Simulated scan of single mutants.
Amino acid sequence: MGVSSSDPLLLRAARGEVVDRPPVWMMRQAGRYMKAYRDLREKYPSFRDRSEIPEVAIEVSLQPWKAFQPDGVILFSDIVTPLPGIGIDMDVAEGKGPIIASPIRTQEQVDNLRPLEPEESLPFIKTILQSLRQEIGNKSTMLGFVGAPWTLAAYVVEGKGSKTYSIIKNMAFSDPTMLHQFLGKLADSIATYVRYQIDCGAQVVQMFDSWAGELSPQDYETFALPYQKRVFQQVKQTHPDTPLILLVSGSAGLLERMALSGADIINVDWTVDMADARARLGKEMKVQGNLDPGVLFGSQEFIRDRIYDTVRKAGNRGHILNLGHGVLPSTPEENVKFFFETAKQISLTAAV
Rank of each mutant, 00 (worst) to 15 (best):
T151M: 05
E59F: 03
L75Q: 02
E214A: 15
D111T: 11
M207F: 03
P70N: 06
N316W: 00
D89S: 05
P332H: 02
S216N: 06
S210V: 14
S166D: 07
P82R: 07
S261F: 01
G137Y: 07
D241T: 11
L254Q: 03
E55R: 12
K126T: 14
I198L: 08
A350Y: 08
Y165W: 13
Y220F: 13
K96E: 12
S166H: 13
A93V: 11
D188R: 12
P329A: 02
L246T: 03
S299K: 01
L225D: 13
K126H: 09
A36E: 09
R41N: 01
T342I: 06
V248N: 10
P45D: 15
P115Y: 05
P240C: 15
A263M: 05
R41Y: 08
Q288V: 12
S6K: 00
T238G: 01
D209N: 02
G184P: 12
L328D: 11
D209C: 06
Q345K: 13
R15M: 03
N112Y: 00
W150L: 09
F68H: 04
G184W: 05
T331Q: 07
V157Q: 12
L116T: 02
T141C: 07
E158Q: 08
A263F: 12
M1T: 10
I125Q: 12
P329C: 04
K313Q: 09
I128V: 08
T342L: 09
V110L: 09
R304N: 12
V80Y: 00
Y227I: 12
D273W: 00
S216P: 15
V73Q: 00
Q181G: 14
D305T: 07
H319K: 10
R41V: 01
P176E: 13
D241Q: 08
L83C: 09
A172L: 07
R38T: 10
Y227L: 11
L225N: 09
Q63P: 07
F47A: 11
Q130S: 10
I168A: 08
A259Y: 02
I190P: 08
V272A: 04
Q228F: 08
E108A: 15
A277L: 15
N138S: 08
F182K: 09
L281W: 01
L254T: 06
W65Q: 06
G315F: 06
M171W: 14
L10G: 01
S46H: 06
S121K: 14
V19E: 02
G326L: 11
Y165L: 10
D309F: 03
R105W: 12
V146Y: 04
V248T: 04
M285A: 02
I266T: 10
Q218T: 06
E108S: 06
G72K: 04
E59R: 04
V194D: 15
E334M: 01
M274L: 14
I128T: 09
V231T: 02
A187K: 03
Q107E: 14
L244C: 02
P149W: 13
K96R: 11
V18R: 06
D269W: 14
D276M: 03
L10K: 00
E42T: 02
L246P: 11
S5K: 00
N112W: 01
F47S: 08
P176Y: 05
A259M: 08
R195P: 09
A259G: 04
V204S: 09
F173E: 05
A153K: 05
I74G: 11
V287W: 01
F338S: 14
E333P: 01
T242L: 07
Q107V: 06
R306W: 00
S249N: 12
T106I: 11
V19G: 06
A224M: 09
T310Y: 08
D264W: 00
